[in-house]
Amino acid sequence: MGRTSDAIAEGVAIATSAARLVVKNHILVDTIAQGGVFDTGKYIADAREALRAMAEEAEQAEKTLAELRKRARGRHSDPSGTHDYRDRDVRNLKRRAKQSHGVATKLRETMEDAEALSVIVEEAREGAWADVRHNLDRRLRVEGMRPDQDPDYDTMREARMQALRLVDLQALSSQQRARRKVKKKQKAAAEHD
């Protein structure tokens, strides 16, 4: 029973981490990209929805494993592939179905646990802030750094120059052509009137 309970705990931990990541991404998009306000209630609903989706996935896995177990029972020939189960696999399929059931049950319990949902949201908020802080720190270090402070300056110089030629100068040239085209059309329209 220890292996089953360990597998359930691991499955719940993975699903909770995935829910936290979903919420973190929603926080980043809603508050930063779209300029929204952090609303704990909205993100609790997002966490509950993420857990619900993963519980349904575990329930579907349980049903699939039960079907595979039924088909495997009484089959004693050699399997033709990885998922071609035989009678000797029935016990393992039953255990895996039990584990999936346990994960789904725990996730559904967590969905109704306001404190657990709050913890997921708070950890997601902290993760979002850590991402923002890391990105700001990196940008400030890179953009504010003088060449003599950058140990990789000489190594990366050729790559930066190539990017300047292939990307930045090409974009600038394209913008200039577009501006000239617009001015030419405006001039033609003014002369036509």
Score class of each variant (00 low, 15 high):
residue 117 L to V: 00
residue 129 W to T: 03
residue 137 D to W: 06
residue 170 Q to D: 07
residue 159 A to M: 14
residue 152 D to L: 11
residue 165 R to V: 08
residue 178 A to M: 06
residue 178 A to K: 04
residue 184 K to D: 07
residue 178 A to F: 04
residue 115 E to A: 12
residue 82 T to L: 14
residue 164 L to E: 08
residue 144 G to A: 01
residue 121 V to E: 08
residue 159 A to K: 06
residue 127 G to W: 10
residue 159 A to E: 15
residue 85 Y to S: 02
residue 95 R to A: 10
residue 123 E to N: 07
residue 134 H to A: 07
residue 78 D to I: 14
residue 156 M to F: 06
residue 189 A to S: 07
residue 162 Q to N: 02
residue 99 Q to E: 15
residue 91 R to N: 00
residue 144 G to K: 03
residue 106 K to L: 14
residue 149 Q to V: 01
residue 181 K to E: 06
residue 86 R to G: 02
residue 120 I to S: 00
residue 145 M to T: 00
residue 87 D to V: 09
residue 118 S to Q: 12
residue 115 E to D: 08
residue 154 D to I: 09
residue 178 A to C: 02
residue 75 R to K: 04
residue 180 R to P: 00
residue 77 S to F: 14
residue 123 E to T: 00
residue 147 P to E: 13
residue 146 R to H: 08
residue 154 D to G: 01
residue 139 R to W: 10
residue 137 D to L: 09
residue 88 R to D: 14
residue 94 K to T: 14
residue 158 E to V: 07
residue 181 K to I: 04
residue 118 S to F: 07
residue 158 E to W: 12
residue 160 R to A: 09
residue 146 R to D: 13
residue 155 T to D: 09
residue 119 V to K: 08
residue 90 V to T: 11
residue 180 R to H: 01
residue 91 R to S: 08
residue 138 R to F: 05
residue 173 S to W: 08
residue 121 V to D: 05
residue 117 L to T: 00
residue 158 E to K: 10
residue 92 N to M: 15
residue 82 T to E: 15
residue 148 D to S: 06
residue 119 V to G: 04
residue 149 Q to D: 00
residue 95 R to E: 15
residue 182 V to G: 00
residue 154 D to W: 11
residue 108 R to S: 11
residue 108 R to Q: 01
residue 138 R to Y: 05
residue 171 A to H: 01
residue 80 S to C: 09
residue 149 Q to P: 00
residue 135 N to S: 05
residue 136 L to I: 14
residue 97 A to V: 03
residue 93 L to H: 01
residue 83 H to P: 05
residue 98 K to E: 15
residue 180 R to Y: 01
residue 183 K to L: 11
residue 83 H to Y: 12
residue 160 R to C: 05
residue 116 A to R: 07
residue 184 K to P: 00
residue 133 R to M: 10
residue 84 D to Y: 10
residue 119 V to W: 12
residue 121 V to I: 06
residue 139 R to P: 00
residue 146 R to N: 04
residue 93 L to N: 04
residue 133 R to I: 09
residue 155 T to A: 03
residue 118 S to H: 11
residue 176 Q to N: 04
residue 84 D to F: 11
residue 127 G to P: 02
residue 81 G to N: 13
residue 110 T to V: 14
residue 164 L to Q: 03
residue 108 R to P: 08
residue 132 V to K: 01
residue 94 K to D: 11
residue 188 A to L: 08
residue 156 M to Q: 06
residue 80 S to H: 10
residue 101 H to I: 10
residue 156 M to A: 01
residue 178 A to G: 00
residue 111 M to S: 04
residue 163 A to E: 09
residue 116 A to Y: 12
residue 120 I to D: 00
residue 86 R to E: 10
residue 149 Q to Y: 02
residue 89 D to E: 12
residue 133 R to N: 07
residue 89 D to Q: 05
residue 175 Q to V: 06
residue 116 A to G: 09
